[in-house]
């Protein structure tokens, strides 16, 4: 069973329906005990880093998350669920994250441009993945596949070995990480049509 952590941040229904579409039952839960009992865990999230972290803390999710990751259960972070795994974020001041992946979450630089047009922030829309390591979660996803992004901050891991994919937007940034059974994406698989559903399916089959 897949548990999708509900801590009051964002559209969880699409993640749940995405798993159902590819044949996996998923529950949306606000109960940390359910997270501890799940085979696979998904940490989604949109909004501000600080608020998300605060909600994880008040919801009693921090210890359960750290524990299931430590135990090596398949874990998928999406968007803010990727950023929260890092040491700290500079969004609205400096805020501590879960510190599972050493590194920082920083904003896209001001004034980026390409081909004479400025690059808007948020980075919003479909952009390509460039792969840096193999993971079963990306089986069947080709180099250059377009996936859907919407974010103003990106992650900078200290250890380059965790970088699964990068994407170019003014700079080349880390768009997904993987480390053993821990996978997290800056993009939204649940909003990336059939390629995104393929990633959810791969995650559902990971052991």
């Amino acid at each position: 069973m897949i548990a999708i952590i509900d801590y009051g941040m964002g559209n969880l229904r699409s993640v749940q329906k995405g798993f159902e579409k590819v044949g996996f039952a998923a529950v949306v839960t606000a109960d940390p005990k359910v997270v501890l009992e799940a085979e696979r865990i998904v940490l989604p999230g949109v909004g501000a880093f600080r608020d998300c972290m605060r909600n994880l803390e008040t919801g009693g999710f921090v210890e359960p998350i750290l524990r299931v990751i430590r135990e090596g259960r398949p874990f998928l972070g999406i968007c803010l669920g990727l950023q929260l795994l890092f040491t700290e974020s500079e969004e609205f001041g400096s805020h501590q994250g879960l510190d599972v992946i050493p590194g920082r979450v920083v904003r896209f630089p001001d004034g980026m441009s390409a081909s004479g047009e400025k690059l808007p922030v948020p980075h919003m829309g479909w952009n390509q993945l460039s792969f840096h390591c193999q993971s079963p979660v990306f089986a069947g996803i080709d180099e250059g596949t377009n996936v859907y992004f919407v974010h103003s901050y990106y992650v900078r891991p200290e250890d380059a070995a965790v970088v699964a994919t990068t994407t170019g937007y003014g700079i080349e940034f880390c768009s997904a990480i993987c480390k053993d059974n821990l996978v997290a994406t800056q993009f939204h698989p649940e909003k990336s049509q059939e390629k995104g559903l393929q990633i959810l399916k791969n995650f559902g089959a990971m052991s």
């Binding site: 699409s14 329906k17 990336s192 049509q193 559903l197």
Partner: peptide
């Protein structure tokens, strides 16, 4: 919106 979000996986 609810019915659409069950059938299409895009923004």
């Amino acid at each position: 919106v609810r019915k659409t979000a069950e059938r299409v996986f895009m923004p």
